[in-house]
Design a protein around this nucleic acid. Structure first.
Lengths: 255, 255
DNA sequence: AAGTGGTCTAGACCACCTA
DNA sequence: AGGTGGTCTAGACCACTTT
């Protein structure tokens, strides 16, 4: 007499003596079932209580595992209805700057060269961004960031030419930028907004970056706000997509 | 006789009758303290047990609140050492396609127009991407996605010209793309990789998108894999940054 | 040894959805 | 009414870091 196959067969179990925590083991099991088609997109997962019961773990632990899957964008939780396998949808993708981070972490290979520092009258659009009163002046600093002696990033940064601000003094220092880039920044910004744009290099920028004029690169605009919510530093980075690949993986990649 | 100020003063409390859950209230309180400078970047938060005790909630609930802050990139948790306020670091930013998602959700305002469909021999680079044997042919479909009668996205997609694949049949259908874009895609892809690049429009692309030749736009490359991990569809979207602003906010924005 | 975050339990009650 | 996810508790033990 045949025994009906349980919803969760026992070929896959949670080993509590394993170094991998139970919730991570469970997440891995469910991922595998999504990957091999046992759970189809749109399908509903067994309830958290059912999963907990089947694997002999507490409901909170099962919940933690499903929370992981939700963070990875693999499932959707709907109160009162259940947890559902998500369909791939490219508008759900998000791109990080992890590759740049890896490069910038190697401080000893970095060098920052100042190309230009001038005080000039702020143009209308810049005054608006930095919330400056009329006919105010700004400081512009252009820098080149090199990695192992090779040009990596072109940076142009504006700041209010306000002698009261402690930021100005440090802005002219070479290592401020590395402070911004790396973890140990001295100025404590409360918040910042970044904007990524496609652009192409003009002759001067191309020369500095040792690329060709007209080449398509990323422009990463930044606007930092100080503790009192005033915009204090606006500028942009120019980086080639080879140096900063923006890649996003969706679905189950088991790696 | 003065009473020493407790680490957590009681001007801010957690109201268990509030509709906002306790962990969200606590997260809001800690965020405010980061925002107003009570907690400086680099500083250590009180221990989870201390927070729980001070607010009269259980340790698990306090932990959940801190988990929220961690997800938002505001704090770092280090086992054995404590939880620390993060410094703003632009390489920690990530960019989503939420703005596009909002537009594409309005299905009734969308229209997909097929510009071209051809079967052609795969060039070397394409064969490599799609893992095709030599001298295999591919199907190319070019489409224009319109929103409220205005050109929004140019799309070029290649697929293996394999009559066995169920994807080919559907690829020529107009509404496949909307299936890819929206939630109800028929083909169940196991995984996908997206890559964002800066590029500029050629004459033909500019004409279709009603933009000017040479204008800088985003190129969003996609590579979909089927259930057996074979690359099945490669292509790209061309979208102007005005239609798809890539913006990232960091730090505490209290909104 | 003491303190920290990380995992886990076995309950409880609530909010929401479907039948 | 019954099932689902969401919140919460009061403990327990573990892994890691610092003293």
């Amino acid at each position: 007499m045949s025994i009906p196959m349980p919803e969760f067969n026992d070929t896959e179990r949670i080993d509590k003596k394993d170094h991998l925590p139970a919730y991570a083991q469970l997440a891995r099991i469910i991922k595998r079932r999504i990957s091999n088609g046992s759970y189809q997109p749109g399908a509903r997962l067994p309830s958290e209580a059912a999963i907990a019961g089947n694997f002999g773990i507490s409901a909170m632990t099962a919940r933690q595992a499903i929370g992981l899957l939700e963070q990875e964008g693999l499932v959707d939780r709907v109160q009162g209805r259940g947890t559902f396998i998500k369909r791939l949808k490219f508008t759900a993708s998000h791109f990080g700057l992890a590759s740049l981070n890896a490069i910038l972490r190697e401080k000893e290979k970095l060098e920052v060269r100042i190309l230009k520092t001038v005080v000039e009258d702020a143009r209308e659009d810049l005054r608006k961004v930095l919330q400056l009163p009329k006919e105010n002046s700004v400081i512009l600093v252009e820098r080149l960031i090199l990695h192992e002696k090779h040009p990596l990033i072109f940076h142009a940064g504006y700041a209010r030419a306000d002698p009261e601000s402690p930021f100005i003094e440090t802005m002219l220092e070479t290592d401020v930028l590395t402070g911004l880039l790396l973890e140990e920044s001295l100025p404590s910004f409360k918040k910042a907004q970044l904007k990524l744009l496609p652009t192409s290099l003009d002759g001067r920028e191309a020369k500095y970056l040792q690329l060709t004029e007209g080449q398509n690169v990323f422009k990463l605009e930044h606007l930092y706000f100080d503790a009192s919510d005033l915009p204090s530093a606006f500028g942009w980075f120019l980086i080639s997509p080879e140096r900063m690949p923006m890649i996003c993986r969706m679905g189950v990649w088991d790696d």
